[in-house]
């Protein structure tokens, strides 16, 4: 048993891509992409899959990628975007990212979002785009542990617009703390 914990994850590279040839371009750069929208995968099959960038397919032609801490994959592929490949449009992603894990996380989420996370099946690696206490958020449920450490069990990675980051962190953190957990992040 572990208390719910919310952590702000700052040190990661992120990249968005849009455009009719974005999927093709990612594949050409060695990035495995999810075959259907609203799902995610790791960019490569490796022994420790969680050590590879996460690739989320937000729509038919829209992707969000997040590298691991100190990862180099996104830096590498971003360089070739400077050549303006046709049909591939880079999207600046300066999201605030959170990691929510521990027990009672579904009690936390039930207070901030109308998605029934507890009922989600993770087999298809679902990606949830939802409103969380009034803020548009991207949520990836995972079964831990991932590189964040912590105990095995359901965990959530949450991204939001950076200008809503302080609000979401403080508000979600307050609920986590009220549920007996902790928030590691910044305030103000």
């Amino acid at each position: 048993m572990s208390a719910p914990a919310l952590k702000l994850c700052v040190q990661r590279d992120r990249l968005g891509l849009k455009g009719p040839r974005a999927a093709e371009w990612l594949a050409a750069n060695g990035i495995r992409v999810p075959s259907t929208a609203n799902t995610w995968t790791y960019s490569a099959e490796v022994l420790a899959a969680a050590a590879a960038p996460l690739v989320a397919r937000l729509g038919t032609a829209e992707f969000f990628l997040e590298d691991v801490v100190a990862g180099s994959t996104l830096k590498r592929i971003s360089l070739s975007l400077d050549e303006h490949p046709p049909g591939v449009y880079p999207v600046l992603r300066e999201d605030w990212a959170f990691h929510l894990g521990g027990d009672r996380i579904h009690e936390v989420l039930a207070q901030v979002c109308n998605v029934n996370f507890a009922a989600l099946s993770l087999d298809s690696r679902p990606l949830i785009m939802t409103l969380m206490i009034g803020v548009a958020a991207l949520v990836v449920p995972q079964n831990g542990p991932d590189e964040q450490g912590g105990a095995a069990g359901r965990q959530y990675r949450i991204w939001c617009d950076p200008t809503f980051g302080p609000y979401l962190g403080e508000s979600l953190g307050a609920v986590v703390i009220e549920c007996g957990g902790s928030y590691t992040g910044v305030s103000g």
Binding site: I133, G134, T163, G188
Partner: peptide, 17 residues
Amino acid sequence: GRSFYPERRTPIDAQHA
């Protein structure tokens, strides 16, 4: 409820304060 108010802050918010 908790009276959540989704407030946006620019990246310079701390400097302003």
